[in-house]
């Protein structure tokens, strides 16, 4: 086993060169280079974290803006809805007024026409009465030779017409 057989003749150079080369490794690689490598990693991690935070903030802002937009949009929509509803009610009221006015006009026209008809009917009836009174006087004169006064004839006619 050379590790033991050669121990006495080689241990000094083994230890010496190990300390030299491990020392070099430690001071040059371990102390000199590794911190820089780790620094790079840390820097990258920091940058990634920063970027993520910025992205997160941007997203939050976008969300906020969207929310504000939505609120505004909803408001606008509500306003529009209210406007439409108002216009609708106004239009409805207006048309109702118009309709009622027209109705009124029609009603008065109708009432007038009815009154006219009534009057015409009445006057026609009165004329018929007059004619009937004259006729009744005439008929009585001719047939009985009696002169009947107009009021008498009139009351007789009235009675007859009321019965008839």
């Amino acid at each position: 086993m050379p590790q033991i057989a050669q121990l006495l003749e080689t241990y000094q150079s083994q230890i010496f060169w190990l300390l030299v080369f491990f020392g070099l490794t430690f001071f040059v690689v371990g102390r000199g280079m590794v911190p820089k490598v780790m620094d790079t990693v840390a820097q990258r991690d920091k940058q990634i974290a920063d970027d993520l935070a910025a992205a997160e903030a941007a997203r939050a802002k976008a969300d906020e803006e969207e929310e504000a937009w939505r609120v505004r949009e909803n408001e606008n929509r509500a306003n529009a809805q209210a406007l439409i509803a108002q216009a609708k009610t106004e239009a409805a009221a207006k048309s109702e007024k118009k309709i009622s006015a027209a109705q009124k006009r029609l009603d008065t026209k109708l009432a007038k026409a009815e009154a006219e008809i009534e009057e015409a009917f009445k006057s026609a009836l009165a004329e018929v009465e007059d004619v009937a009174v004259d006729a009744a006087q005439d008929i009585v004169q001719r047939l009985a030779g009696v002169t009947v006064t107009k009021p008498v004839a009139k009351s007789a006619v009235k009675e007859a017409m009321a019965n008839g």
């Binding site: 080689t10 000094q12 150079s13 060169w17 030299v20 070099l24 490794t25």
Partner: peptide
Amino acid sequence: GIDISFTNSAAWMMITT
């Protein structure tokens, strides 16, 4: 007074480094 012979062992320590 210390033996610091450059051996095959030392050579591979160097190569490793």
